[in-house]
Simulated scan of single mutants.
Amino acid sequence: MMIKKMFLAILALGFVATSCSSDDDNTSSAPTNSDLVLNLAGLEALGNDFVYEGWIIVDGAPVSTGTFTSVTFPQTFSVNTSDLNSATTFVLSIEPAVDLDPAPAATKILAGDFLGASANVNSDGIVGDFSASTGTYILATPTDTDDTNEESGVWFLDNSSGTGMTGLDLPVLTEGWKYEGWAVLEGTPISTGTFTDPAAADENAATSMFKGDAGNGPGYPGEDYLQNAPTGMTFPTDLRGATIVISVEPSPDNSPMPFTLKPLAHMVPATAMTHTAISMGMGPVATISGSVTRN
């Protein structure tokens, strides 16, 4: 496959940045430009603090094709013809809206190699391939000593063998991305915390405002919703009927809400038993894709 070649080209993004413009010696004429047309599906608006930026790889170096905030496509960009004709790969990154660094950010969301005039781009190779991902969780509240509210916590572990084991089978993410767990309660997503390793506690294990006072819980991602409930909610709660989600988030994150990529999700059955392994299913968005055409 061409994916290995694409990765080699993408690695160059972290080291070199190239301007879109060039000066021709002994001539005052402007360089000739051609159209680059993006037709992408599944992107979400990033808010005021971030933008999308396209890049083409020319002789191993990234050349910006321009930034955009609208996620309505197709969109057309004017790019130096020589650079565009020489490009081997297209990459899309998420960049700060005020960006003093001319190099691409680590958070790259789409990539694909040109075959002739077009490139099919997707998130599988540049973020992660979630096609084989699986998830298991339990309902429990291990961060307090009250055994009457066990349906108010969710932990991504598998205890079906009698011993707690990793509940999430997820690929290692590339730089610039993290996983985040969520419980969607009455339409409102409440984070369980971010993590990069499903076999370790999430990043807010010791600082969560929701957990109880008896400890940090097991060494896996998860959360107890026991205190300091958001406005309009009451904790402890009952997660039966809620939707449990694993999302993939940009780092730094563009929003306190879940990002577009949600590889795993599951509605907790109304009859779910606490301390019992529950399997997740595929989420609503496991990949983002599209096409890029040079004219």
Rank of each mutant, 00 (worst) to 15 (best):
P74N: 12
E175G: 02
P250F: 01
P96A: 08
P269D: 01
A200D: 12
P62T: 07
A277V: 09
S34C: 09
S19N: 08
G215C: 02
P218C: 05
L36D: 03
G162C: 06
T65H: 13
G112H: 08
N48S: 15
A9M: 07
P96F: 05
T276E: 13
N159M: 12
D49Y: 08
V63E: 11
E203K: 08
P171W: 05
T231P: 00
D158C: 10
G14T: 00
V245C: 03
G219Y: 12
G281H: 10
G162S: 03
I138T: 07
T148S: 15
S28Q: 14
M209P: 04
N254C: 09
G66D: 08
T260G: 10
G47E: 11
S78A: 12
D23Y: 08
T141A: 05
T163N: 11
E223N: 11
P236N: 00
P171A: 02
L115P: 00
L170P: 06
T260F: 03
S123H: 13
P230Q: 14
V51T: 11
L40R: 14
T234K: 02
G193V: 02
S34N: 11
G193P: 01
N254I: 10
C20K: 10
L100W: 02
T207C: 03
T27D: 11
A242M: 01
V245K: 04
N204W: 08
L40K: 14
S208W: 04
N39E: 14
V248G: 01
N216Y: 04
G153S: 05
A242L: 02
T237S: 05
A41T: 14
T143H: 04
T174G: 13
D144Y: 11
N295P: 13
G222Y: 12
Y225S: 04
A103E: 02
P102V: 10
G54W: 13
P284F: 06
M233D: 00
M273G: 14
F235L: 06
I3T: 09
F195D: 00
K5L: 05
T166N: 00
L43P: 09
A286N: 04
L264K: 07
V154D: 09
T271D: 15
W182P: 00
A97L: 02
D113R: 15
E95L: 09
N26C: 11
P256A: 09
T194W: 06
T81L: 03
A105C: 06
P198S: 03
A272Y: 14
A105Q: 13
S161V: 00
L168P: 13
F77C: 02
T145R: 11
L110V: 04
I246G: 00
I57V: 15
H266C: 09
Y137R: 05
M267N: 15
V285W: 13
I109F: 12
T194D: 12
V248P: 01
N159K: 15
M165E: 13
N33F: 03
T88E: 15
V71Q: 08
T188L: 00
P256C: 06
V292P: 07
I288T: 03
D35F: 00
S131M: 10
A265M: 12
S279Q: 15
L170R: 11
P236I: 00
G60D: 04
L185Q: 11
A201Q: 08
Y225V: 01
P250G: 02
V37M: 09
V91D: 04
G42P: 15
E175V: 07
S78I: 07
F90M: 10
L264Q: 04
Y225A: 01
V245Y: 01
K262T: 08
M280R: 07
D83M: 01
F195I: 06
D224P: 03
